[in-house]
């Protein structure tokens, strides 16, 4: 009996360790350990033994059963491990392949830049305001200290609808509307679309965008203008950016300045971007002309203010390195995707 158990155990163990299929393993289990299995048969045959030997024989058989069950379980686990390893091996893919990304959509670069600028000024207490694109001569010129004979009318070739109605040539038109409605303290930012009769080329477009800023309060100085524009330049062109004021002329400000930022490409040494000057013209600004304040019913002896006008398209092109105004309005999808 004992011999038979030993033999069966040894044979079965050998089969288990050779087994490579889970199904075969199961077959072994049924054949040896099943209800009619070989080991079960040996157990059953115990009834032929003398009663005093039965407990001993029972122990031997049960020990063999336990041993074989463990061996089967171990083999089972091993086979599963191999099977998983094989599956993982077979499922390997070529990770170098790219597929089209999900269409995520995105904003036009002008909108992206406009949002950044409005957020910046909004955080400094500026109210963002909008005003009409089709304007009267009064708001676009007259109230901005540009009477009919003024040479500044020549500076800007304006599109006219009637003798008195035109496409605004500057967002400054919105200044006057604001100051008519709201009295100081005023901190306003007016981004918008403007129009000038310029043929479209790399640097011109008959449609473009400005962001007009206006501050009117008691004791506002040119140094305050410098302060806010310094902040602006640092925010948009980098922490080390410096600004420079150059005298200029706008009818609605006095004194008037052009503002240059040190070239962020070369740090002011001179490069292709700044045409070797080390400076990039970013905006026009000045102290609000007394006549403009008066026209809007604000006492210029009590209040002073400053105004500035940023060319949104220009800033966008500088920041994103876009080299032609035409590209901006062409709206090629391959262009649009680059900013999002």
């Amino acid at each position: 009996m004992e011999e038979s158990v030993k033999k069966l155990t040894a044979e079965t163990e050998a089969k288990i360790s050779e087994c490579v299929e889970k199904a075969d393993l199961n077959a072994i289990r049924v054949r040896v350990l099943g209800k009619n299995g070989e080991l079960t048969a040996l157990l059953k045959s115990m009834k032929d033994l003398p009663p005093e030997k039965r407990p001993e024989a029972g122990k031997i058989v049960n020990a063999a059963r336990e041993k074989l069950e463990q061996a089967i379980a171990a083999r089972q686990a091993e086979l599963e491990r191999l099977e998983l390893a094989k599956r993982l091996r077979e499922e390997k893919i070529d990770i170098s392949i790219d597929i089209r990304p999900p269409a995520s959509g995105g904003l036009h670069p002008l909108t992206i830049m406009r949002s950044r600028i409005t957020e910046f000024f909004s955080s400094l207490g500026f109210v963002i305001a909008d005003s009409p694109e089709i304007e009267t001569d009064y708001y676009n010129f007259e109230a901005l200290n540009i009477p009919a004979d003024h040479p500044a009318r020549e500076m800007q070739d304006t599109f006219f609808i009637t003798e008195n109605i035109l496409l605004r040539s500057q967002t400054s038109a919105g200044q006057v509307r604001m100051m008519e409605k709201v009295k100081p303290p005023i901190k306003m930012l007016s981004p918008g679309r403007v129009f000038r009769a310029d043929e479209a080329d790399a640097t011109h477009s008959p449609v473009f965008h400005q962001v007009e800023g206006l501050v009117v309060d008691k004791g506002i100085t040119m140094c305050d203008l410098k302060g806010i524009l310094d902040l602006f330049a640092k925010k948009f062109f980098g922490e080390n950016t410096k600004t420079r004021f150059r005298p200029s002329y706008f009818p609605f400000t006095e004194p008037s300045v052009e503002v240059d930022a040190s070239c962020s490409q070369c740090g002011g040494k001179g490069c292709r971007v700044c045409k070797g000057t080390g400076w990039i013209e970013i905006l026009g600004a000045g102290m609000v002309n007394r006549n403009v304040l008066k026209t809007c019913g604000i006492n210029p002896d009590e209040y002073t203010g400053f105004a500035f006008g940023v060319g949104l398209d220009r800033i966008t092109n500088i920041i994103f390195g876009i080299n032609s105004m035409r590209t901006v309005f062409e709206n090629d999808v391959r262009f649009l995707k680059q900013f999002n």
Binding site: V127, P185, K187, V215, I220, T221, D224, G227
Partner: peptide, 12 residues
């Protein structure tokens, strides 16, 4: 550069 020390605070 100065920062509008005389100006009233406004909510933007």
């Amino acid at each position: 550069s100065t920062f509008m020390s005389t100006a009233k605070t406004t909510a933007g």
